[in-house]
Design a protein around this nucleic acid. Structure first.
Lengths: 219, 219
DNA sequence: AAATAAAGTTTACAACTTGTTTACAACTTG
DNA sequence: CAAGTTGTAAACAAGTTGTAAACTTTATTT
């Protein structure tokens, strides 16, 4: 699980980002000022830095300066008004930038891209007999490929990212299906049944009655 | 005990919120208008503000504006479910929002989340071998997940919030079952038995003869 | 562009879970 | 000890989830 530090002075924006990244399976830490960031960095070595360039007192630039000689990739966040900042930032060594306000999906895409470029630690995951390769988009069970459809695969990833957490049907719909569903639907249930069967995870994917599902993994 | 101010013009809603928050162990004060809120704030420094955004004369937004530079977190209540309003509120500095009509449990969950974010409460609680994670909605006993049904879970939370206090059956019914039961019922008793067994808390949840139950915890 | 195949969703009903009641045993209290 | 209260097991109804199959949409092939 990759670690990301969010350096952003507006708590609302910071929290929003955190929420999305955590659902996507990243381990986040928040810093609301340059100073706080320094503190956190001492015992949290992130795999990626999200940096708001417009922190008070030019702190953003100072921090960027500090990061550029390190191994850690930096994506910076900037308000639309400061177009010049982008160029400046990239020249100073940022790996990417994103303009506020941005879509959650766009941010996630850029994060994935940057991490890939930096040769992320592992695109492979292992769960008791199950091997998942994010880059190849393949899932193997006892060495043999299990054919998962798009929705099945995304559902599996969501479950894995939130292992041991109870996920409500609404959350699942929002993230795999991209919309807030109005009214009744059994879609989530049916897809859960499908991956339960294909993966032989009948016991591992628990039903949380009247709520949703939870993937239980020991480790 | 955290202090919360409820700024809401509809007395019925305000009272309902107050009742629930007090049962959950918060110290509440009510304001029915923006002006009244100002007065109360002079000698009641809340740890959290619950603000109805649709007060008459746009007072809600004005107040939010005033709070955003203070240290106090704000959750706003809105009747409108429009996404735009939510975003608007969050941008203006609210820490969370909740759309009316809402469930008591949802409001409590959000309050806990915001207070936690502000470094007051921890996400996890520990009670002699029992680990409760409010966010994941999981309860672990010696590291293993204990499956609790909805009512069992809510009953457990109520007991914990009122630990060492004797809770009458009526209070328990009101809070967990959402209604004032007319006549006889053994429902509470049976659910108490169930969580006693599941958690191994046979001794910790004491029976208060002819009254109700009490969760006894040392610390 | 039509035919075909695959994926995704809805429907219908079976199977199961939960919450509640009932019945009776065991306990508390005066 | 008697009356009332609580513990416990079992039965039940209501509602939720599992499952197969029909149906709709989307993608692929010809």
């Amino acid at each position: 699980m990759e670690k990301i530090i969010i350096i952003e002075d507006d708590p609302a924006i910071s929290d929003l980002i955190k929420l999305n990244l955590e659902l996507a399976g990243y381990d986040c830490r928040q810093a609301y000022s340059g100073q706080e960031a320094q503190c956190i960095l001492t015992d949290f070595s992130p795999d990626l830095v999200l940096l708001d360039i417009s922190l008070p007192d030019m702190e953003g630039y100072e921090l960027l300066d500090r990061f550029k000689n390190s191994e850690v990739p930096v994506i910076f966040l900037t308000a639309r008004s400061a177009l010049i900042d982008k160029v400046k930032g990239l020249k100073m060594g940022a790996d990417d930038y994103i303009v506020k306000p941005f879509e959650a999906m766009e941010l996630l895409a850029r994060i994935e891209a940057v991490l890939r470029r930096y040769g992320r630690k592992s695109d492979r995951m292992d769960f008791g007999g199950l091997e998942i390769d994010l880059e190849e988009r393949t899932v193997k069970r006892d060495g043999f490929i299990v054919d998962l459809t798009l929705k099945e695969y995304e559902l599996l990833l969501l479950l894995i990212h939130n292992r041991n957490k109870a996920l409500s049907r609404e959350k699942i719909l929002e993230h795999v299906w991209d919309y807030e569903y109005i009214g009744e639907t059994r879609t989530v249930d049916i897809h859960i049944q499908k991956i339960r069967k294909k993966l032989g995870w009948e016991d591992r994917i628990k039903t949380v009655y009247k709520f949703g599902y939870r993937l239980e993994v020991l480790s």
